[in-house]
Design a protein around this nucleic acid. Sequence first.
DNA 1: CGCGACTCCTGCCGGC
DNA 2: TGCCGGCAGGAGTCGC
Length: 270
Amino acid sequence: MPELPEVETTRRGIAPHLEGRKVIRLIVRDPRLRWPIPEDLAIQIENQTFTAIRRRAKYLLMDIGGGTLISHLGMSGNLRLVPVGTPVLKHEHVDIELDSCMTLRYTDPRRFGAMLWQRSGEEHPLLSKLGPEPLSEEFNGERLYQLSRKRSMAVKPFIMDNAVVVGVGNIYATEALFAAGIDPRREAGRISRARYNELAGEIRKVLARAIDSGGTTLRDFIGGDGKPGYFQQELFVYGRAGQLCKVCGATLSECRLGQRSSVFCRRCQS
DNA sequence: CGCGACTCCTGCCGGC
DNA sequence: TGCCGGCAGGAGTCGC
């Protein structure tokens, strides 16, 4: 569920309910996430007030008290507000009770997510080596071009490398490469400056569009049913291997790059 | 240093 | 109907 647009959608959804609110109580039902939830987290945030809810890459950064509560949603995580007293279901590992009769509830079936603490003035190691935000000025085709020289890996895992640019997950990497007409298997170091300019533009466009429509897969965020987020119908290739290309009608191909499935059109992408 | 493989975990889907 | 293998939106870590 969470790529950058979904995390940003979550941030926008919860921020107005958190900023200025005090934490009454932290309830950790299961601390076993990707890393254990710090045992002193309650001491850090109880009776403290949220001042700002920010995002960096796919991390949510919640400023409170003497530091920042850092959360990552992993593959299956979800953070949403529920009225106090809402029954607790399986995999709903953490509650942060507010002074507003609302509870910020963290759910994560696979437990690949994280809930960490960063003291004011310090930078958590997870955040220290991140590349630029894809929608910022620092991200552009020239950066892709420069960083890719002498790189032998395929272009798709290259643009999914958080040191190159953050927030480009499997869905949007797949879609951006299709939009730019670039074969995901191509060697990163052998792609021209002009094509990287095109690619950077498409990465920016697809992410911006997904954020505007509230994320591809906000189903979990909204608390919904099951299947497709409504942005899904706008996907040209992701999840459509074996189906027909919406542009040229050819059958879409699939390969694996960096242990991730990659769908592409042999006719539209080279 | 760069790169690919492996790993964490649960749920779900397709095939038999 | 049930069991089993494979795969899933992430990304740190470990060998080579």
